[in-house]
Design a protein around this nucleic acid. Structure first.
Lengths: 130, 130, 130, 130
DNA sequence: GTGGTCTAGACCACG
DNA sequence: GTGGTCTAGACCACC
């Protein structure tokens, strides 16, 4: 489980790592008890500084997604899958709501927004077909 | 024309001001030649730092939405409505795309995303009915 | 409000800062809305690295004790006093429980423990009289 | 003589082992000459890494609590009971002092601390009644 | 080997 | 001025 990091897209690297780990837990790519790559490995594989990875992992511990197993690394917490599954759509919903609210407050019609969502979603599916 | 500012939602205050001014121009709330509130007035009415409003107005001048009228302040530029109308959906599209891309990359299905958009949009319509 | 830091007592510096801020909020030394010293000031006054202070403040934000006010610094959150007051004895209780449990599991009698607590508490009061 | 280990309570596992062995010697659960479980047995029975148990036993040898008997393992040293009995309350006192000092420095009153000690001690007695 | 802490310093965004 | 992010590297404790 190695993250795809985009530098300079405005989203902090540590947050990208957090979100990707949470998504991976939600969809079963990371199972309970499984170890996440060590900070050092994740750091070298993603070409990111060790401390940045550590920061992400620390945040994930704070949210109860990871637990530290002394001397052996960090593992997925027992209740993480449930948390992450519940949080999966929530993470999307949160950002989506902001976009939609701004659109509505500025007179975008229902037809316009639905058509926009469809066309964008279709375009993305062609971009990376299943 | 006074802006609604949300602090702590992650979006810079100056950008919120810029976008709201542009939307107001696009939908005709602000007409060509009309004066935008003075930096000081906008600042006090929105409880925002004066420099922040100045920064927003500076950006808007740079984009050609506002023009400086000597001695009287800033007014809507002649070609601003056309610019802003063209940019209206584009501003929404840009952010929407980002949200949808993350959703798709993390296994959110078409059904889930469409249902999410509908429920959120409906909820917003109830929140502030026409 | 400047913290007293002990290096090399085993407790991480950032945690010492966190606990002292929380105690200060609990007993009213820091009021709602009041700004905590800037990371840079706290750092120089306590002879601690800026990042260490930042780490402490970040943790306090995570716990909802501090809120970030864009561009102006960090302030005590509205509900922090209640939280901290509730947490004040809890912070002591948590550590106390561990000590007492170990004592009990190893045959220390009630008389012994109560006498120990009294003698230690009295000694501390003489050390730093009110 | 098998130890009760709590992971993730902040206290190093090897130290938990050391302290429990010393307490057991002090209260006569472990007698002079008696063998302590082998490193491997203690490790498997407590689900702890072998090296960790070895580290604990090494420390205990350093303190003169355990002595190595060629070919048969480690046994309780002749003068261990006296040492451990003398150190028994001291081990508790040391940690207790730290907790009380923080409490006092942060305005916890005598009444509060005594009442806290009583309630915690009572709760623990109900938890594991004699 | 693992994570955790701390330092030092650069750069950026925001107000 | 403020905090936030990131990098780099040292040192430690633990397993």
């Amino acid at each position: 489980m190695i993250c795809q990091i985009e530098t300079n897209n405005g989203i902090p690297i540590y947050e990208q790592i957090c979100r990707q780990v949470k998504f991976a837990v939600a969809n079963g790519s990371l199972l309970v008890g499984e170890h996440v790559p060590s900070v050092r490995e994740m750091a070298t594989r993603t070409a990111v500084n060790v401390n940045t990875v550590a920061r992400a992992y620390r945040d994930l511990q704070g949210e109860g997604v990871l637990v530290s197993i002394r001397g052996t690394g960090l593992a997925i917490a027992a209740d993480a899958p449930e948390k992450c599954r519940r949080g999966r759509l929530e993470m999307v919903r949160e950002r989506l709501q902001y976009v939609l609210r701004e659109a509505m407050q500025n007179g975008v019609s229902s037809d316009e927004i639905y058509s926009l969502v469809h066309s964008e979603w279709d375009a993305l599916q062609k971009e990376s077909p299943p």
